[in-house]
Design a binder for these strands. Structure first.
Length: 139
DNA sequence: GCCAACGTTGGC
DNA sequence: GCCAACGTTGGC
């Protein structure tokens, strides 16, 4: 299983929106960046991801799961853009802030730290465990 | 709200 | 195929 991180501005699409979709989940649409799209194409059913609030949150707030593999993005006719569906699994007991992540030397290689503009990113298994621990939340 | 960093576009 | 111009993202 692989691990990922999904970024969204909470005002546009936040954790509350995501949890409201329940087990059915929702398309992670609107991505218009090749790297982010390629990451989504690599996702398998059941892969887990962090849900990160950018710009006005700056923290990882919960865990999501891929519930549909890559398919055409329904918000465009342009066939270059695919997306997956994700569903909320559970919130973090304690959200993990960007500040905390930056301050932890074990997380210095994270894409979140080094390429903050990539909206869908891979997360290593070690990083996953460390952040779940910081969030006081098990998978 | 600003602006640096990054990605994309399009003229040459 | 290069690169200047432009648009967008996201931390501050």
């Amino acid at each position: 299983m692989a691990y990922w991180l999904f970024k969204s501005e909470p005002d546009v699409w936040g954790w509350d929106h995501q949890t409201a979709k329940g087990e059915q989940g929702e398309e992670w649409d609107g991505v218009r960046n090749y790297q982010a799209r390629n990451n989504m194409r690599a996702m398998k059913l059941g892969d887990k991801g962090f849900f990160y609030h950018s710009r006005t949150g700056l923290e990882i707030v919960g865990i999501v799961e891929v519930c549909a593999e890559a398919h055409p993005d329904s918000t465009t006719d342009d066939d270059r853009w695919d997306c997956v569906d994700i569903k909320a699994v559970r919130p973090f007991v304690k959200p993990v802030s960007l500040e905390t992540i930056k301050a932890d030397p074990r997380l210095s290689e994270m894409v979140l730290v080094n390429n903050s503009r990539l909206s869908v990113q891979p997360v290593s298994e070690d990083e996953w465990r460390i952040i779940c621990d910081l969030g006081q939340t098990e998978i």
